[in-house]
Simulated assay, not measured.
Amino acid sequence: MRRLVMWDIDHTLMDAGRAGPLACAAAFTAVTGLPHRETALMAGRTDRDIAMQTFTLHGIADCEPHLDGFFDVVVAEFLARRHLLREQGRLLPGVPDVLTALGGRPHVVQTLVTGNLRPIAEAKLAEFGLTGLVDVEIGGYGTEDVVRATLVRGSLERATARHGEFSSADVFVVGDTVHDVTAALANGVTAIAVATGGTTAADLAAAGAHVVLDDLGDVDAVVRLLAGAPD
């Protein structure tokens, strides 16, 4: 038995504070020369989706020529505000213990499927001491598509190429939004939802999550769920 766990980051593993929204706002003005008025709804969406919607909100219908430069500036602006992660953010209950325990199980592969840009995702993990517990090389990140299910599919393909085939029943997408749930279901894998963001447990269940947790605080139960019973 081999298991693959795909972690969302924001409001699943941590509350990262305001560094991300502030970086997006500053990058938008730097790239377009326009004052930033609003950012599109972020929760559960990929950074490509958020960027495209934000440009549209400001009257820029064709944002593709801007996106690569925009993403580069977002990363720079985020890293300049990295101190806000510690000042404003926090790990959510149980997170370091769950990831560490799973990291000690040879049959469990952990990675990220997140709407974040990869350098930002790695910075968030590093700031809270989680680097090395997940395989970032096989993850899915926010520049890949506007549809989150595509990120799950790409990550699964990379994980399979590196580790061999996974049974769909042994692949878990863990996230806090309906978008995480629907992305898992679209790929025929297990959706584990945590009600640690802005979506209620009832709404996550209604979206089709196979399991809904209040949080990851019951470390032993979460590890059993994701790793299976010990040999």
Rank of each mutant, 00 (worst) to 15 (best):
F172M: 01
V113E: 02
L213V: 06
M6H: 04
V194F: 08
D218A: 15
D68Y: 06
H107P: 00
E122T: 05
V152Q: 05
D49N: 13
D231H: 12
R45I: 12
E87R: 14
G142N: 08
S168H: 08
A149K: 05
I120P: 01
V173Y: 00
I120N: 05
G132D: 07
A76D: 13
G140K: 06
A183R: 02
H163K: 12
V147I: 14
P230F: 10
A169L: 01
D10Y: 06
D180V: 09
V74G: 00
L13D: 00
T131A: 13
A16E: 06
T39P: 02
A201C: 13
E38M: 09
D214A: 15
R48W: 09
V152H: 09
T199C: 06
A186M: 04
A101K: 03
F71V: 00
V134S: 03
G198R: 13
A183P: 05
L117Q: 03
A202E: 13
V219H: 06
D10G: 09
T12I: 04
L216M: 13
L92N: 01
V211M: 11
F28L: 11
A207Y: 05
T54K: 12
L79Y: 12
M14K: 00
D97K: 14
L22A: 09
D135I: 12
R2S: 10
L99Y: 09
T29S: 15
V194G: 01
L91Q: 04
G132Q: 12
G188R: 13
L41T: 07
